[in-house]
Simulated assay, not measured.
Amino acid sequence: MQQTSPIGIFDSGYGGLTIFRSIAERLPDYNYIYLGDNARSPYGDHSFDTIYRYTLECVEWLFSKGCKLVILACNTASAKALRTIQQKDLLLKYPDRRVLGVIRPTAEVIGNYTSSKQVGVMGTRGTVNSKSYLLEINKFFPEIKVHQQACPMWVPIIENNEHLQAGADFFVREYCEALMAQSMDIDCVLLACTHYPLLLPKLKAIFPDYINILTQGEIVALSLADYLERHPEIEKLIGRTKQKSFYTSGDPEAFDEHASIFFGEDLKSGRADI
Rank of each mutant, 00 (worst) to 15 (best):
V102C: 07
T215A: 07
Q243K: 15
I213Q: 05
V155T: 09
K145C: 10
T76V: 10
F141T: 10
I158G: 04
N129F: 13
H195Q: 01
T84M: 07
K139R: 15
L190I: 14
V146E: 06
A178W: 00
T18H: 02
Y54C: 04
Y175V: 02
I213N: 03
L35N: 09
S245E: 14
G167V: 00
L72Q: 06
K244N: 13
S64R: 12
P6I: 07
L267T: 07
T106P: 04
I158H: 05
F171R: 01
C58A: 15
F141S: 12
L203A: 04
P105N: 14
A259R: 03
I103Y: 10
G264H: 09
H231L: 06
L198V: 01
I238E: 04
D96E: 12
L62V: 08
S5Q: 14
V189E: 02
I211W: 03
I274G: 02
N160K: 11
P42V: 13
Q243P: 00
W61C: 01
A166V: 11
V146K: 08
R230P: 01
D169V: 06
Q149L: 03
K268W: 01
F141E: 06
S130R: 07
Q148W: 00
F140K: 09
E235M: 08
Y247M: 11
R40D: 05
F140L: 10
D187T: 06
D37A: 03
E218Q: 15
I219M: 10
E162K: 12
T4C: 01
E108L: 15
A81D: 05
K268Q: 12
A259L: 05
Y94E: 07
